[in-house]
Amino acid sequence: MNYLTRHMQSGLYSLGKLSRTPFASLMTCFIIGIALALPAALFVALKNAELISGSLKQTLEMTLYLKQTATPLQVRALLSTLKKQAEIKNARAISPADGLKELQKQAGFDASLENLQNNPLPWAIIVQPSNEINSPKQFEQFSQHLQQLPLVDNVQWDILWVKRLASFITLVHRILYALAAFLSIAVLLIVNNTIRSATEQHHKEIEIIKLIGGTNAFIRRPFLYTGMTYGLLGGMIAWLLVVILVIALKNPSQHLAELYGSQFTLVGMRFDHLLILLAGSLSLGLAGSWLAVTKHLRK
């Protein structure tokens, strides 16, 4: 009997054992599935938050206030130079006259502004950074770079919300890692406890197999397959729960996004994410059962 046949035999034997107690087996799988669904759902939420943050960053603009001495010719030359830079997606110039008009529209105190004898506003250039610049640090560095240009007097941009968003995403990342770690330990313990009960139930069988020359690997194999089956089915249930959650939230989230004038659509787990989830759950099932059987064999 070759190695592969032995594994197939052990796998089929453990599946047969599980099918004889379908309710109890499914209950265990569901508990594992629910435990894994929590970090999986948080992961999906994080991916969506990253998508939202990405689209918001794309709308971030920097305002370059130029020196009062800047002439229209110099402004046009600077605008042309900026547009050629890879870090800049788009740039446009606002003359002092246009700036004043905008200010009148926004501030609502147009009468007071009309009394001004001289327009105090300088030339301004509005710069939209490229998508490669997406962290607060990169924004900071780019801002400093622009600040050093000879014609630029001051650079203004709203760093606070970018920092807030980045901090929020970092926090969610940490929560996700912690939750994934805690719930992985929970899954490990669930599988460990289930397999420990199974080894206690099959104590006599294990002793007989040892007596007739069965190796620890031979004894361990069907229990490992049982643990892996629990893990794999638990992972599939977790994926299914996340899919149901995404379907349930898709329309309400889209409606909410539309109210904010956004085209955002909720995304679910990708195929590679599913594979990672299944590989993780399978590994947890394997590790949990390995620990339980090894402990029993050492008794």
Binding site: K204, E205, E207, I208, K210, L211, I212, G213, G214, T215, N216, F218
Partner: peptide, 18 residues
């Protein structure tokens, strides 16, 4: 030990069947 046990047959008072 498992390989050694395959050289011997053991019968106990109780049949110890599965």
């Amino acid at each position: 030990i498992p390989a050694f046990r395959r050289h011997i047959g053991i019968i106990l008072q109780s049949p110890n069947l599965l």
